[in-house]
């Protein structure tokens, strides 16, 4: 009997080990859709960031932390991913405050248009990268679409097991180490695909009220920042295309919220010329997102605001941090100029 129990325990351990290895093998490596790797990269660069930026693709394609540091001495990190919903930004921020205490938090408001969980694939891109914590649990709970369940997040093998029949060399190459794709959360796109024709308006909506859930999480984000002595700054990236329109009605609601709560809100759509954005050269996808040239212009413009209006840029950092940032700048320009 003793022998049988030993065999049983050993078998259980071997099964767990094998399943662990298989899980590492089958989970998506996001070698093509590199946005899926952004959230996980933060854990290597935690601490002593003056600014944390949260939001969807508009934030990780519009601001360049390396430029912000190089020009203004502001250390920053972007915790953004594709179609990152407001509550996901909130829980990411809650998690971030456990690692560091930034002076300011920048939130890109475009995601306020979503009041319901949207898409499992995007959820995965944001949530799978998070380390396990209460914040991750809450973020998953708030984000699950119909058919999803918590166990699939706890054991991604159960969700991705069917990939076993479609593995490629990247799955083996990045089985234990993810590829590094961002520069402090910024995902560089160097291509230029000019905007053909600027839209004058978006598709008409039946109701222009921003969803209640989204506004509630915005308010929770404000309270969280207050509790952590961080200033919440609201921004809207300068991109505005027909399919992804930022309506005046939405803008008015955000402005009103900002005013009522004493927050700064910068809608960069209104100051594109001042920034110098040219959609013939500064976008890689016909105006939906900025490319690196547009993002650098916007970062310089925004950095100036952060220094002049919010008193950032005067922090003193440890030598380790300074060295890390110098390395960041070098890596950034290496890729930019390659």
């Amino acid at each position: 009997m003793k022998k049988r129990i030993i065999i049983l325990v050993c078998s259980a351990l071997i099964v767990i080990l094998l399943l662990g290895l298989l899980q590492a093998l089958v989970v998506p490596k996001y070698t093509d859709n590199t946005e899926g790797l952004l959230i996980g990269e933060y854990y290597g660069e935690t601490g002593e960031n003056d600014v944390i930026m949260v939001g969807d693709c508009e934030v990780y394609e519009s601001f360049v932390p390396a430029v912000l540091y190089e020009k203004y001495g502001i250390t920053s990190y972007i915790r953004g991913s594709a179609q990152q919903l407001v509550w996901q930004s909130y829980y990411l921020l809650e998690e971030t405050f456990r690692y560091e205490t930034p002076k300011a938090v920048v939130f890109n408001v475009y995601a306020l248009k979503y009041g319901e969980p949207q898409d499992e694939a995007y959820n995965r891109m944001t949530l799978d990268g998070m380390k396990w914590s209460g914040a991750k649990y809450d973020a998953i709970k708030a984000s699950m679409t119909e058919g999803e369940n918590m166990l699939d997040y706890a054991m991604p093998l159960l969700r991705f097991h069917s990939r076993i029949t479609e593995l490629n060399s990247d799955d083996f190459k990045y089985m234990f180490n993810d590829k590094k794709v961002s520069h402090s959360g910024y995902l560089m796109k160097k291509g230029v695909v000019p905007m053909r024709e600027e839209a004058e308006s978006g598709r008409a909506l039946l109701d222009y009220t921003l969803p209640e859930t989204a506004m509630e999480y915005l308010d929770k984000m404000r309270q969280l920042c207050e509790e952590n002595d961080a200033e919440l700054i609201l921004v809207k990236a300068p991109t505005n295309t027909w399919g992804f329109w930022w309506y005046d009605e939405w803008d008015a609601q955000v402005s009103e919220y900002a005013e009522n709560n004493g927050l700064a809100y910068y809608n960069f759509i209104k100051c594109r010329d001042e920034i110098g954005i040219d959609f013939a050269t500064d976008t890689y996808d016909e105006g939906m997102h900025l490319n690196v040239y547009g993002a650098e212009k916007l970062t310089e413009y925004f950095g100036n605001i952060l220094v002049s209006d919010h008193g950032l840029g005067d922090a003193t950092h440890s030598q380790d941090v300074l060295d890390r940032w110098q390395a960041n700048i070098d890596a950034y320009y290496k890729e930019r100029n390659s």
Partner: peptide
């Protein structure tokens, strides 16, 4: 043959988990 029994059972379990049709999309 307890060792063989354990190997076969574990293999079957792993087959179910890895190539079973379950979860989203199935």
């Amino acid at each position: 043959r307890p060792v063989l029994s354990a190997i076969l059972t574990c293999a079957l379990l792993i087959c179910v988990i890895m190539i079973g049709n379950y979860g989203i999309g199935y």
